[in-house]
Amino acid sequence: MRNLGYTIKYAIQRILLMLLTLLIITLICFVLIRMLPLKELPIGDPHTDVILAQREAFGYNKPYLVQFGIFLKNIFTRFDWGISDQLYFGQNVADIFLSKLPATMLVNVYSIVLSIPFGIILGIVAALKKNSWIDHTISTLTMVIISVPSFVYAFLIQYFLCFKLGWFPLLMKDGTDYFTWPMFRSMLPAVMSLSFGVIAGFTRVTRAELTEVLTNDFMLLARTKGLTKMQATVRHALKNCMVVILPSILSEFIGIMSGSLIIEKIFSVPGVGGLYLNSINALDYNMFLLLTVFYTVIGLLAGVVFDISYGFIDPRIRMGSKK
């Protein structure tokens, strides 16, 4: 119980620290982005007046710190991130972002869900058959697959499965019907391209962890008690492995939400990655700022969740303790 209390205290500490880091990063990026020269707005467009009024309200002519204060206040009171002045002329940046989020998240959630069983099973097989040809094959493949970046798989999948064999459409379907079969089918190439690396990552973690646990004395004890190898592995070894595997799944899950820009570009997934690229090309600074904060949050959160979940899953580990 004392341990749980300690873990919660540690978690709160970490989260507060993360928020502080986030605030500093946001401030730096905010100032750097506001320092960039603004693009001319088209004269005579009805939206131009709205945007100019909006800029006035956002304090564009005031000192940067005042601007930052207004920026934070707008976010916290109305979740107002400003208006897109180039890309989606006159529309609310946050609305556009939220409309793009589902596509990215779905592709990534599918790819994680697909990867977990494959990765863990391959890892278990490799660990149980340690130093046999099966283990060597799996380990070498894992090594190779991790080294090759995901967009190379995207090329292969797009060329062979989509173009040559015609199993899937070349690009992801447009529209918002995310839970229909044609949509799912058109997402699959992107999902698969992302999965290769994730599967290999899970395999590697599982294998490394399980081989270590299997050599522990309590495994020998379990066998001497009369448990079969299967029982001992599932009940004792796997449980212990999960201490490492679960946090890595969790952090992967959050980390992958930011998506892969390249995969999104190749399969033209109507998601956040494409929005980011477009916002840079069009110099739509409000959009760019929002996405910067988004990517930062994802990155920080993945690290924090990884650390905290360790403490919750395994009470023996006292994160951040002095000794």
């Binding site: 500093i24 990063i25 960039l36 760019f288 990517y295 930062t296």
Partner: peptide, 18 residues
């Protein structure tokens, strides 16, 4: 910590723009 929190892609973009 703060520096490592900034996503690399954002850093690269900001440097390009500035």
């Amino acid at each position: 910590d703060v520096l490592s929190g900034v996503p690399f892609i954002v850093v690269a973009t900001l440097f390009q723009l500035h």
